[in-house]
């Protein structure tokens, strides 16, 4: 069961229409290391986790990633919603607009549609948790690329918040990896 809260995790305020920036930050809406891939990766892995701490952290970080996905979708929408249709042609957002109009859609900045091949659940706790740690670092790196590309102070502020969350998630998954290793070792030797 999930409950929706009618608010964002962190306030988002874009400064002006910016179709170019919308077409870049959509990377985190539907790209390989984006928020949707993160949420589905963690929420898919919970069933086969052997220890309670791992089930809890995957459920909770997976849920938080959905809130981040909502923040990115909100920024993409706000960056284009007041843009006159006549000004879309010739911008990098035009290819997106041809199919989806002004709706956010999960594809990456290069236009490749979202796919479940971006993540895995191996049914193996150690393999899963190391995939997750790598995913958090890749998401952090993507946010750093986007922060360098952003010329909108409001968007940059939200991207900084999201980048910091990846660092915290990496830390928590590192602790989970140690707890899992201890559990595996105790099962093997005693």
């Amino acid at each position: 069961m999930w409950i929706y809260e009618k608010k964002l995790e962190y306030p988002v305020k874009v400064s002006s229409c910016n179709p170019t920036l919308a077409s870049l930050i959509i990377e985190q809406f539907g790209g390989a290391d984006g928020e949707l891939a993160a949420a589905l990766r963690y929420l898919t892995q919970v069933w086969t986790m052997p220890i309670p701490q791992a089930k809890a952290i995957l459920t909770d970080i997976g849920t938080e990633e959905l809130a981040h996905w909502e923040m990115i979708g909100t920024m993409v929408y706000q960056l284009v919603k007041d843009l006159p249709e006549s000004k879309i042609a010739g911008t990098p957002f035009a290819a997106h607009y041809a199919n989806h109009g002004k709706s956010p859609f999960p594809h990456n900045a290069a236009g490749a549609p979202f796919t479940a091949t971006y993540f895995n659940s191996k049914g193996d706790p150690i393999a899963n948790i190391y995939e997750n740690m790598a995913a958090e670092q890749k998401a952090r790196a993507t946010y750093e690329h986007l922060i360098r590309l952003s010329d909108d102070p409001g968007v940059t502020d939200a991207l900084r918040f999201l980048r910091e969350r990846e660092i915290v998630h990496f830390q928590r998954f590192g602790e989970t990896a140690r707890l899992l290793q201890e559990y595996m070792d105790s099962k093997r030797y005693y």
């Binding site: 995790e9 309670p52 701490q53 809890a56 952290i57 909770d60 970080i61 938080e64 915290v168 998630h169 928590r172 602790e175 989970t176 707890l179």
Partner: peptide
Amino acid sequence: IELNLFLDTHP
């Protein structure tokens, strides 16, 4: 949220 995630791995 921060405390919740921390408590997940430090119950």
